[in-house]
Amino acid sequence: MNYRIFRIVILLIFQLLCLQSFSQINQKDSAITDLADIKWALINNYQPNVDSVNNSCWKGCVFIRFNVRKHQLINVSYTANTPVFILGAVSKAISKINQKGGINIPSLTKEGNKTYIQPFIITNNEGCGFKSGWESDTLNKLSEKQKLMYEQRQGDYDQLQSSIENITNFIDGKKLEMVDCILLAPVVMPVAMH
């Protein structure tokens, strides 16, 4: 009989521990608690439209401007001249971060009304088409229209300079001459996204 009671007690303790672990996995409990976690939250939640990525030839930096209030990212804005599908995907990533508990980093939440800028470097080269070094038979299979399209896309590929020039120009219409902010370390999106 003692063995049976012992098994029941052990089983109850095990179930309580499992229930406690499960509650810690709850989405509301997954707030960002470290600056390095912002990077991984952006990378893991950035999910652009695959068709748009496949037709995009763009390398640039989206500067994400935000404030932190009550553990939420608020007053969020993005660098002007960023492709619409990238803005949509970054905006959805920010929404997911807020839904999952937001930011709970004491050094950030104590700062009050500080403005933060998070550089997010993105490379989409799926839609660039042929590149120098491709065999001539591959180039010969493309129509003149396709060759022209790829040449135009490649000509607009590297937008890093434009991104830097627009670091104080955000889509909310606020073109600033300066920003009193805390600049966070850049997040570099891995090139292979799907």
Rank of each mutant, 00 (worst) to 15 (best):
His194Tyr: 07
Gln152Lys: 15
Asn75Gly: 10
Lys28His: 05
Lys28Trp: 02
Gly133Val: 06
Ile121Asp: 13
Ser91Met: 04
Glu111Leu: 15
Thr79Glu: 02
Thr109Tyr: 00
Asn49Glu: 14
Gln146Leu: 08
Arg69Val: 07
Ile105Thr: 02
Phe6Gly: 00
Leu42Gln: 03
Asn81Thr: 10
Asn44Gln: 13
Cys57Glu: 11
Ile43Gln: 10
Cys61Glu: 11
Lys39Gln: 08
Trp134Tyr: 15
Phe66His: 10
Leu16Thr: 11
Ser143Tyr: 09
Phe66Tyr: 12
Ile121Asn: 14
Gly173Cys: 03
Arg4Pro: 00
Ile25Trp: 04
Lys141Thr: 15
Ile164Trp: 07
Thr168Asn: 10
Asp158Pro: 04
Pro106Gly: 04
Val9Cys: 10
Ile105Asn: 05
Gly112Cys: 08
Leu17Thr: 13
Ile64Val: 12
Ala41Phe: 01
Ile10Phe: 13
Ile10Thr: 11
Ser136Tyr: 03
Leu12Ile: 15
Phe22Met: 08
Tyr46Lys: 09
Gln15Asp: 05
Ser56Ala: 15
Asp180Asn: 13
Met178Leu: 06
Leu139Asn: 08
Ser143Asn: 08
Glu126Lys: 15
Gln72Cys: 01
Glu111Lys: 14
Cys128Ala: 10
Glu165Ile: 03
Met149Ala: 09
Glu165His: 09
Ile117Asp: 03
Thr33Asn: 00
Arg65Gln: 07
Ala80Met: 10
Ala185Phe: 02
Glu111Asn: 11
Lys141Arg: 15
Val9Tyr: 06
Val187Gly: 01
Asp37Asn: 01
Val191Gln: 00
Cys128Val: 07
Gln159Asn: 14
Leu184Pro: 01
Asp156Glu: 15
Ile32Gly: 04
Phe66Met: 12
Glu165Pro: 00
Tyr116His: 03
Ala93Gly: 07
Gln72Ala: 11
Thr79Leu: 01
Thr82Ser: 14
Asp158Ile: 01
Ser56Lys: 02
Gln154Ile: 10
Tyr78Lys: 08
Ser162Cys: 03
Ser136His: 09
Ile94Tyr: 02
Ala36Lys: 10
Ser95Asn: 09
Phe85Ile: 04
Phe22Thr: 04
Phe63Asp: 00
Met1Leu: 08
Lys110His: 07
Leu35Thr: 01
Ser136Val: 14
Ser56Cys: 07
Lys175Glu: 06
Tyr157Arg: 05
Phe63Cys: 00
Val62Thr: 09
Gly127Ile: 10
Ile43Glu: 13
Thr115Lys: 13
